[in-house]
Design a protein around this nucleic acid. Structure first.
Length: 593
DNA sequence: ATCGTAGGCGCC
DNA sequence: AAAGGGCGCCTACGAT
């Protein structure tokens, strides 16, 4: 083991300086350890050091692990501070991310985490300024200790008291380490602890990746962006008056059509609906998919849908969007490692819902290329793996999984695809209904896996992804619960949600293992992930390493699949084939061809 | 003024 | 008989 230097205070600037002066490079493996749960010590192969300064961040100590020592912290705020300072550590245990996995839901601040680990209700978490005026025996512990006898953290510590002096910092760090120990004991009580712990680790590093994505941003060619936007809105307006005039011109195209009426507010769905009624188009709502059939026969509908498209660009993905989120040629937004539902990554600033039309503006910087890789048919393959359905897993041997499914069901490929998706989404109507019977006969194990999740969801019970994420059901479907007559709808909604979540969530887990593997292995090539899109990675890499990075992405996928599914209960899971479409490109829009 | 909801639409 | 999952972000609107 490495040399160990005890420290009392850890702060970002000093940490970064210390890491640099110790010769640590970005991506280096940092060997870390904790001594006696008090204070934090760390070292690298190149030397050890200590530090002390007044500006703290919630860096906890590190846990000792013979195979993979890693940083430990309460949440990714710490990672963000380190990344901002140019330091990227290899591994971490993110207490917040682990909490969301083990307990479900989205909220995971220290007070909530600590309460859960101590078996006390989050509803009783004390708040700042709450005084026990009635003298009812409120024992809030000792001011110089973060924990209270009742299992809660002291609110003054949570609100910033942890950072007031070196002793508090050390205790706060030690408390994070204690939280990890408690989380690991929770994990140890689960059916497959090794599996869950591995997932917690990849989910933790995914948070680290999120901090890096937020800092790095997505390369954007500003001129190209303006050009594309202009095809919808006209040239970039010079002033506010310009913008207003352009907007009026767009509105007038629709408003001047016969029967529309200049008083119609195109941005008010109720107005639009009655206007459509006047021109002979009777629809329950004005969604695009509902209006599309009328497009060929109604000039008004056609103009309205064209207007809607431009309006979407104007309001959400237009010049204002570029101006707000692009700096130094990079589009930046906040990232979250897992949503509150099934655990997919989320991103703000439009990074996850940028219209396909604008992808031509996503352009590699000079001397660089993108390597884009998207997983093929990830959800059915994951279903095969997590359910252990040998027949379904065998279908995954093909590049196109739907072909053998179609052959087995005796239906067209398009019907087979609909049937598979319908089973995973909980849809049983229409054309899918027929083929679903065939699915039940041909792939009973996979279908039973989905049915089990559905039944648990209907009953209001939590379900779990293969990696061990708890999917909370109790706060889902409330919108129906008020009315007893819609309880059936609520149950059905929970069933569909649960059915989909066990697949979508497991896919998200595999995706993140893949992503963090690419992150770990890509450093030597100068490869940086710049976008994660549920089943797609966009990697920015020096041009001369494009081909090598493409190979790396596939290698990492195979490694990720092996890591994630090797300990599965069913041997079938380990044999499921995962495929990625990988291309080296200069613009994101070059991808599909 | 600020907030939450609904309708709507973008992506997977 | 019918029953499609997730997210972010925009506008209008009603409630506070």
């Amino acid at each position: 083991m490495h040399a160990l230097e005890m420290i009392e205070v850890v702060d970002a600037a000093a940490l970064i300086e210390a890491l640099r002066s110790a010769g640590v490079q970005q991506g280096d493996q940092l060997g870390l350890a904790i001594a006696d749960g008090i204070g934090a010590g760390f070292a690298t192969d190149t030397g050890s050091w200590s530090m002390s300064t007044p500006h703290p961040v919630p860096v906890a100590a590190a846990i000792e692990d013979a195979f993979s020592p890693r940083w430990t912290w309460w949440n990714s705020d710490t990672a963000a501070v380190l990344v901002a300072g140019g330091v990227r550590v290899a591994r971490c245990w993110d207490v917040s991310a682990a909490h969301r996995m083990l307990f479900g839901g989205w909220r995971s601040e220290p007070a909530r985490v600590w309460a859960a680990l101590n078996g006390v209700s989050a509803a009783t978490i004390p708040v700042m300024g709450q005084l026990d005026l009635l003298g009812g025996g409120g024992d809030d512990g000792q001011p110089d200790r973060p924990g209270r006898p009742d299992g809660h953290l002291r609110p003054d510590w949570v609100a910033g008291g942890w950072a007031t002096n070196p002793s508090h910092l050390a205790q706060w760090a030690a408390t994070a380490c204690r939280a990890v120990a408690l989380q690991r004991s929770v994990i140890a009580s689960l059916p497959d602890p090794a599996r869950v712990e591995v997932t917690v680790r990849s989910e933790s590093v995914a948070e680290l990746l999120c901090a890096e994505l937020a800092a790095d941003g997505l390369p954007i060619d500003l001129a190209a962006a303006d050009e594309i936007i202009a095809t919808f809105l006209g040239p970039r307006p010079r002033h506010e008056q310009d913008a207003i005039a352009a907007r009026r011109r767009r509105d007038d195209v629709v408003l001047s059509l016969p029967g529309v009426g200049s008083g119609t507010d195109l941005r008010n769905p109720a107005h639009v609906r009655s206007m459509l009624d006047r021109v002979g188009v009777d629809v329950p709502d004005t969604r695009a998919w509902r209006l599309e059939p009328f497009r060929a026969t109604s000039e008004v509908v056609d103009a309205l849908l064209t207007w809607r498209k431009a309006e979407r660009i104007e309001t959400t993905f237009g010049f204002g969007w570029i101006d707000k989120h692009v700096r130094d040629g990079r589009l930046r937004g906040a990232w979250s490692g897992s949503d509150g539902a099934a655990g997919r990554m989320t991103a703000q600033a439009g990074l996850h819902n940028m219209p396909a039309d604008l992808r031509g503006a996503v352009k590699a910087e000079p001397g660089h290329v993108f390597v884009r890789a998207d997983l093929g048919q990830i959800e059915p393959r994951v279903l095969a793996a997590v359910s252990g359905d040998a027949q379904f897993a065998a279908a995954a041997a093909e590049d196109d999984m739907y072909a053998p499914v179609a052959a087995r069901l005796g239906v067209d490929r398009s019907v087979a695809k609909i049937a598979v998706l319908a089973a995973m989404y909980g849809q049983t109507s229409g054309a899918a209904g027929q083929a679903l019977q065939g699915m039940d006969n041909s792939y009973p194990v996979a279908m039973q896996y989905l049915r089990d999740a559905d039944e648990q969801g209907r009953a209001g019970n939590d379900v779990f992804t293969a990696g061990g994420r708890r999917i909370r059901m109790w706060d889902f479907g409330d919108q129906y619960a008020e009315n007893p007559s819609t309880e059936r709808s609520a149950m059905a909604a929970r069933g569909r949600f649960a059915r989909n979540a066990v697949v979508q969530g497991a896919a998200a887990e595999l995706f993140k293992v893949w992503a963090v593997t690419v992150r770990a292995r890509g450093g030597a090539l100068g490869a940086r992930i710049v976008l994660c899109l549920h089943d797609e990675l966009l990697v920015h890499v020096p041009s001369e390493h494009g081909a090598a990075a493409a190979r790396l992405l596939d290698d990492c996928l195979q490694e990720a699949a092996w890591r994630h599914f090797r300990s599965a209960r069913h041997t079938a899971a380990a044999t499921v084939r995962f495929v990625a479409d990988i291309t080296v490109i200069e613009k994101w829009s070059d991808a599909k061809g």
